[in-house]
Amino acid sequence: MVMIFTFTTQLSETTQRAIYTSTMIDYMDQAGTKINALVALAGIGIDEDEVVVTADSTRLVFKTMWSYDNDVLTNAEHTIDLSVETGMSDLGNVITIKQDGALLSNPAYVSYIDTYIDSLKVKYYGYILYVESMKFEYFDEDDNLTDEEEDIRSAGIELTFKRDAVGLVSRPLRTSLYIRCFFMNSYMRMGV
């Protein structure tokens, strides 16, 4: 009897962890796609050496002529601020995306993103949830690590997500993703 109980419980937990891991990977994949699409806007209409405003290990601020909030190209420069905020959600830390200092607010745009990535469900505009940490490193055009804002042509982003599985609160699941986002618009301008 003990063996059957143990086997059943173990099977249940293992399966639930597998399920939650897969859904987290799915969520993480979509979050990575979203961040990659966001960083791809960097430098639209901006001189390549003026694109990055702030390049910290936990925060990236860049300039673009694309209004992310309205999803349209404009005549004005915008700053996009990508960082992790703590204590803003019950669902872990969140990645906030600010445009010109303000959190994204356009529900139409968020719904567009929902369509774009299909089932990405974000509770707060511009937020990506379940985040434990986000770390940046930066590279120049020759893929050498750099801290000089004017030399940055790509960013490596390591995302770590943490989520408590149902019934397994004491044993949270962690999944990590490393994505390399290239500032293609800066490269295009360099080629002129």
Binding site: S12, D29, D118
Partner: peptide, 20 residues
């Protein structure tokens, strides 16, 4: 049965990722 129901969600995740 419970596990089977939950496991059936797995292909959805895979399908979406493949489609994307």
């Amino acid at each position: 049965i419970n596990l089977n129901n939950k496991l059936s969600e797995m292909p959805t995740v895979l399908v979406r990722n493949t489609l994307m």
